[in-house]
């Protein structure tokens, strides 16, 4: 960690399916390292898997950046999923259960939002999509 107490970010490039597996394995390892329970680490790994797949499905390439969060009484992990793809045309629909433009279940984003402690998403046709998810150690 640097003197400011912030961990160095861990970036995983997402370009193919294997990268999805790599990203979620890194996420689980990081979570366990800072004291998440195995159940919590599994939640985080599942969320990362969804976010990484969305990048691959909708933008073909991007990255997932993992970093450690700390406040006075808790540790957590932040996951930033970033791409420069075409963006999501209808954000509110993308967050509805069962909505998908890729023909899949469409539970990815709404599911991640349900299990994360905080969830932010920004998307535009010019700037691509960025999702920021935070999970804290209970």
């Amino acid at each position: 960690m640097n003197p400011a107490g912030e961990a160095t970010d861990l970036s995983v490039a997402i370009q193919n399916e294997t990268d999805i597996v790599t990203a979620r394995m890194r996420g689980r390892a990081l979570a366990l390292q800072i004291g998440f329970s195995p159940a919590q680490a599994t939640l985080l790994a599942t969320a990362i898997s969804e976010l990484a797949r969305n990048i691959l499905l909708y933008a073909q390439r991007g990255e997932v950046v993992l970093s450690v969060l700390e406040n006075s009484h808790q540790a957590g992990v932040s996951v930033v999923a970033r791409d420069v793809g075409p963006g999501i045309a209808d954000l509110s629909r993308a967050l509805e259960d069962g909505y998908s433009t890729s023909g899949r279940l469409g539970l990815g984003l709404p599911g991640v939002r349900r299990l994360a402690d905080s969830f932010e998403i920004r998307s535009s046709p010019e700037g691509g999509t960025i999702v920021v998810v935070k999970m804290w150690c209970p």
Binding site: P38, A39, A41, T42, L43, A45, T46, E50, D97, L105, L107, P110, G111, V112, R114, L115
Partner: peptide, 14 residues
């Protein structure tokens, strides 16, 4: 299905 995996699945709505 492992307990932790099941928990994550139901919380995702799967």
């Amino acid at each position: 299905i492992q307990p932790d995996v099941a928990l994550a699945m139901v919380q995702m709505g799967l």
